[in-house]
């Protein structure tokens, strides 16, 4: 869905850190936020991110 080259340049809009790519969301482990992917488009808006925890 998101190719490797694009993954390499995509960053968390809040901390500009590296991201973890899942099928339906993109996670910033540093900010503990999960950004949704809707209709194939990563929604990299801080206001749209869900809290994320590494525990599960």
């Amino acid at each position: 869905m998101i190719d490797e080259e694009l993954k390499a340049i995509l960053a968390c809009p809040a901390c500009k850190g590296d991201l973890i790519f899942e099928e339906t969301r993109i996670i910033c482990p540093a900010c503990r936020k999960a950004y949704p992917i809707r209709d194939g488009i990563p929604v990299m808006l801080i206001s749209e991110a869900e809290p994320w925890s590494p525990d599960r």
């Binding site: 694009l6 995509l10 960053a11 968390c12 500009k16 950004y35 990563p42 990299m44």
Partner: peptide, 15 residues
């Protein structure tokens, strides 16, 4: 070309 939702004031791209 690829598109993503993001804010011009907090771009979701690396330096």
């Amino acid at each position: 070309v690829s598109f993503r939702a993001g804010d011009a004031q907090a771009l979701p791209v690396k330096d």
